[in-house]
Computed example of a mutant assay.
Amino acid sequence: MEIRLDFLNWLDHDTSMKILGCLQDPADLVRVSSVSRSWRHFVIANGLCKQLCLRMFPHFLRVDCVIEPSCGNEKASEVGCSKFVEWETLKREHKAYAFLAQGCLLFPFKECILDAISASSTDNYPVESIRNTLLQGDHSEGRPSYWSSKGQRDAEVPETLVYKLVADICVITEIDIQPFQAYFQRGSPIYSAISVRFLMGHPKCPMGDPLGEPLDDTAHDKFIWTYSSPEFPMAQENSLQNFKLPEPVVCIGGILQIELLGRVQRQEMDDLFYICVAHVQVKGRPLSPAFGVEMLGPSGKFVLKALSCDPPSLPDDDCLISWWTFAWAS
């Protein structure tokens, strides 16, 4: 006769935690929590989904709290006994972090740039505006389409391009940049940078919506950067060059800055160095409308908003839908 034992009832707490801590996929933890009431209680009470999510994506260590605005989260003093409030908080975090971790892995890849915010300089605005970099290729309506910096005698002077992303939380994996080739100049020079670096972060103050016309401005006093990539070499080629980040980066706050470092091409007309970009793409997984954030000042801490108590519109993925149903089971 086969004997079945529930190891959670036979093993001590620490050993059970070590066993379940070996699970590396949030979907597996959600399945574990659906085995029985006691297993679900163990997973939720010990915050296993939250722990796994934070191991996978340390960027979420800056979460101050999780709220569900549409469910009307009340303050503890307005709800009842502290144990009830604590359990409701644990359940909310279990659902949110389970979906958050899996969403970072399974939500569909999309183009993540919403709009251009500013460039550190522009040579001939608005003809050579940063907004031209949102258009594919180097032509638009029969005319050259590109952004150009102002000319510099010093080839070491950097330039920056700042963009607003499509969501306040995006998992960014790669950025594509196409330097501009001035085919209308003698020799068809290519005004690339020597290298590029990427910064991600959030505004110091709320930004207007819509953003309005992009400005020539430095971004140092307007944004807080929470991620800085390694420096990538850029080829002096008229092609869409791919820069893949060493690992997926969770951009919290929805702001990306491209640093263009070093200049290689002088313009024959004035003997000054320029950098010109035809097109920029940012690829990743936006986590809206399922999640939003509310930044809590310069500390970098933020409120994570689970924006629906019901399953949001999901990709056509049976696996994602099934574990989401488990995660949100009461």
Score class of each variant (00 low, 15 high):
194 I>G: 14
233 P>A: 10
242 N>D: 05
34 S>I: 06
190 I>E: 13
269 M>E: 15
303 V>A: 03
277 V>P: 00
81 C>F: 11
122 T>Y: 05
100 L>S: 03
51 Q>Y: 10
232 F>G: 02
206 P>K: 03
210 P>S: 06
185 Q>C: 03
207 M>L: 15
149 S>G: 13
277 V>C: 06
296 L>W: 14
1 M>Q: 07
309 C>Q: 12
170 C>E: 12
119 A>Y: 02
63 V>I: 15
292 G>N: 13
168 D>I: 00
305 K>Y: 04
59 H>Q: 14
239 S>T: 12
304 L>R: 01
143 R>G: 05
188 S>Q: 14
53 C>G: 07
213 E>M: 02
202 H>I: 06
124 N>K: 05
157 V>I: 15
215 L>C: 11
24 Q>I: 04
85 V>E: 09
49 C>E: 08
241 Q>G: 05
285 R>V: 00
114 L>H: 06
114 L>C: 02
65 C>R: 15
263 R>Y: 07
286 P>C: 11
318 D>W: 09
121 S>W: 15
54 L>W: 05
302 F>G: 03
98 A>Q: 07
299 S>G: 13
292 G>D: 12
307 L>H: 04
163 Y>I: 04
267 Q>D: 10
2 E>H: 08
293 V>W: 01
128 E>F: 11
299 S>M: 14
258 I>P: 00
314 L>C: 07
260 L>W: 10
325 T>F: 05
64 D>L: 08
268 E>C: 12
204 K>S: 01
128 E>G: 05
194 I>C: 14
166 V>G: 06
276 C>Y: 03
250 V>R: 03
290 A>R: 08
147 W>Y: 06
56 M>S: 04
125 Y>F: 14
3 I>H: 14
6 D>T: 05
71 C>M: 15
5 L>Y: 09
212 G>H: 10
95 K>G: 11
184 F>D: 15
305 K>T: 04
247 E>N: 05
144 P>V: 10
256 L>Q: 02
276 C>F: 07
39 W>P: 07
127 V>P: 04
287 L>N: 00
104 C>P: 07
83 K>I: 07
109 F>G: 00
257 Q>T: 00
37 R>G: 14
99 F>P: 02
150 K>H: 07
226 T>N: 02
171 V>R: 10
142 G>A: 10
212 G>K: 06
101 A>C: 03
47 G>K: 11
40 R>D: 08
299 S>L: 11
21 G>I: 12
188 S>T: 01
288 S>F: 01
139 H>C: 07
70 S>F: 07
329 A>R: 12
323 W>H: 14
207 M>S: 13
210 P>N: 04
